[in-house]
């Protein structure tokens, strides 16, 4: 079964590896049957609140990779909504000019329920882009002023029902995240985040249906083999596995 990974960071500056490391990253993905990845950029390379130049630098890496491997990489444009409406639109317009850029990535500059998300979502709607929103249960982290709880991601999706939203990190969002997402049809969850805690993928499929769960690894922070085993080890059946590992993301991103 070929796999489509909806949540990766091929450029990771922690080891000063440079762009060449992204090629090795793709080869490693292919060794695990992953034919296509969504590249989100090295989103914390400059801390949680990057300025315009830093954002451009991160997105330039993604644009380079998408152009280098157009059949194997979909790019998401990383944004910092707190930089304001004009900065958001400028960066979105710059990125979507490159074929293969199909989404927007939001991290921890602000909470998804903040007013500064409006231009982001308007841009997504205008260009038909998918929005991938970082989310994690804040029960123990206590950073909700800039860090998105699953309920915040759901609220964002409800406010903009014409935009398709990926709520990242199923394992971090947990049971409460799954339940929050239940009646929000324009929102799907990806399976990335934390160690492979048992039971949560099966729970998400039971409550949301396999068609609303996407495989995502968060590699290189995580191991492709482990991330895939979260799905194949969950006892879901071949049809659900196929949907989660490939078909859902293919349809969402309108890939061939």
């Amino acid at each position: 079964m070929t796999v489509l990974d909806a949540h990766t960071h091929p450029h990771f500056r922690e080891h000063q590896a440079g762009r060449e490391a992204a090629d090795a990253f793709l080869r490693e993905a292919q060794r695990h049957g992953i034919e296509h990845v969504v590249a989100l950029g090295d989103v914390l390379a400059f801390g949680r609140n990057p300025d315009e130049d830093q954002l451009r630098s991160i997105n330039d890496d993604t644009l380079w990779l998408v152009q280098r491997h157009p059949r194997r990489v979909t790019g998401f444009c990383y944004l910092n909504p707190t930089l304001g409406e004009r900065a958001v639109w400028r960066e979105v317009e710059r990125c979507v000019a490159v074929p293969g850029m199909r989404g927007l990535k939001l991290e921890v500059a602000n909470n998804a329920r903040d007013a500064c998300m409006r231009p982001v979502m308007q841009a997504a709607e205008r260009h038909g882009l998918v929005v991938l929103q970082h989310a994690w249960s804040m029960t123990k982290i206590r950073q909700r002023s800039f860090h998105t709880d699953p309920e915040d991601a759901v609220l964002l999706a409800r406010r903009f029902p014409n935009v398709r939203v990926i709520m990242a990190h199923l394992t971090g969002c947990g049971v409460r995240g799954v339940l929050a997402a239940r009646d929000c049809d324009n929102l799907v969850v990806d399976t990335s985040g934390a160690a492979p805690e048992a039971g949560i993928v099966a729970y998400a499929v039971e409550k949301l249906g396999a068609e609303r769960v996407l495989y995502g690894s968060d590699a290189p922070i995580r191991d492709f083999a482990v991330a895939i085993a979260r799905i194949t080890g969950a006892g879901l059946g071949r049809d659900a596995e196929r949907r989660i590992l490939r078909e859902n993301a293919r349809e969402l991103l309108r890939l061939p």
């Binding site: 060794r31 048992a198 993928v201 191991d223 083999a225 482990v226 085993a229 979260r230 080890g233």
Partner: peptide, 16 residues
């Protein structure tokens, strides 16, 4: 770390 973590994930680290 069965049953807290997904058992399949541990041998998966070795498979390839």
């Amino acid at each position: 770390h069965t049953p807290i973590l997904e058992t399949a994930a541990a041998p998966a680290k070795f498979a390839r």
